[in-house]
Structures are given as structure tokens and as C-alpha cells.
Amino acid sequence: MPLFIAFVIAVIVVAIVARRNAGIRQCRWREDRAGSKGALVKYNCINCGAEAFRSTGKPDRCLSGQPKSGL
């Protein structure tokens, strides 16, 4: 019985850790140096096609559901 309880707890912990960054893992960001504008670096998602400009670091969430600016 204690082994079963330990197994259930382990499954719950793994499920929580797997869901924690689910929104981030949907997009896979790649830097596009040709599209950069001064201090802003352009990033393209190879998974959904979203574009983002950041001054520091890669985007930290999926932007696939947001409308593109300038349209």
C-alpha cells in the first residue's frame, strides 16, 4: 500500500511539472538577425510562425493567438 501511494504522488508531481511551462513550449523561437531593428532583435517561431521583437532575451510565451501588428 505505501508503494502505491508513493507512485500516485510521483505521477501527480510529474504532471504538475509537465504542465508548468506548457504555454512556453508551444513556440520554438529562433533569432532573425536580418530582421532586427537597432536594439530590438527579431524572433520567429518555427512552430506557429509568430514574430516578436525583444530587447533582451527570447520571448517567454506563445504568441500564436495574438494578431500581428501593422495589419
Results as ranks from 00 to 15, higher is better:
17 V>P: 06
58 K>S: 13
53 F>R: 03
45 C>Q: 01
16 I>T: 13
6 A>T: 00
8 V>K: 12
32 D>L: 03
38 G>Y: 04
19 R>K: 13
31 E>D: 05
58 K>G: 01
14 V>I: 14
37 K>N: 12
6 A>G: 14
46 I>C: 09
44 N>S: 13
56 T>G: 08
16 I>R: 03
65 G>M: 07
56 T>L: 15
61 R>A: 09
19 R>T: 15
26 Q>M: 01
42 K>P: 02
33 R>I: 11
10 A>L: 10
28 R>H: 14
23 G>T: 03
7 F>Y: 09
60 D>L: 14
6 A>N: 09
23 G>A: 02
13 V>I: 15
39 A>C: 01
26 Q>I: 00
12 I>R: 14
16 I>D: 08
50 A>S: 08
18 A>E: 05
13 V>G: 15
57 G>C: 04
50 A>I: 01
51 E>I: 15
45 C>Y: 04
67 P>S: 05
53 F>A: 09
46 I>A: 04
34 A>I: 12
48 C>R: 02
63 L>K: 00
27 C>S: 06
13 V>A: 14
55 S>R: 15
54 R>L: 09
8 V>N: 13
8 V>G: 12
43 Y>E: 00
41 V>M: 13
36 S>Y: 04
22 A>N: 13
46 I>D: 13
41 V>Y: 04
64 S>K: 06
47 N>A: 15
59 P>E: 00
21 N>L: 02
32 D>F: 03
31 E>K: 06
13 V>R: 10
32 D>R: 04
47 N>F: 06
20 R>F: 15
15 A>N: 05
9 I>N: 04
57 G>A: 10
58 K>E: 12
53 F>E: 02
36 S>A: 11
16 I>H: 02
18 A>G: 04
40 L>W: 13
43 Y>I: 01
53 F>N: 09
60 D>A: 13
45 C>G: 04
68 K>T: 13
17 V>N: 14
57 G>Q: 04
41 V>E: 01
68 K>V: 11
15 A>R: 10
48 C>P: 12
26 Q>S: 01
39 A>L: 09
65 G>H: 10
52 A>Q: 11
42 K>T: 11
64 S>I: 00
25 R>E: 12
44 N>W: 11
67 P>R: 08
35 G>E: 11
14 V>G: 08
6 A>P: 05
23 G>P: 08
39 A>E: 14
57 G>H: 03
13 V>N: 14
29 W>P: 02
39 A>S: 15
18 A>L: 07
43 Y>M: 00
10 A>C: 08
57 G>M: 10
34 A>R: 09
68 K>H: 07
42 K>G: 01
40 L>H: 12
65 G>N: 08
14 V>R: 12
7 F>V: 05
43 Y>A: 05
43 Y>H: 05
67 P>Y: 02
33 R>T: 09
25 R>Y: 03
13 V>D: 10
66 Q>D: 07
11 V>S: 15
58 K>M: 13
49 G>F: 06
52 A>G: 05
12 I>T: 06
55 S>M: 14
35 G>Y: 08
54 R>H: 08
57 G>T: 07
43 Y>C: 02
6 A>S: 09
12 I>F: 14
19 R>I: 10
39 A>W: 11
53 F>G: 09
23 G>Q: 07
62 C>N: 02
50 A>V: 06
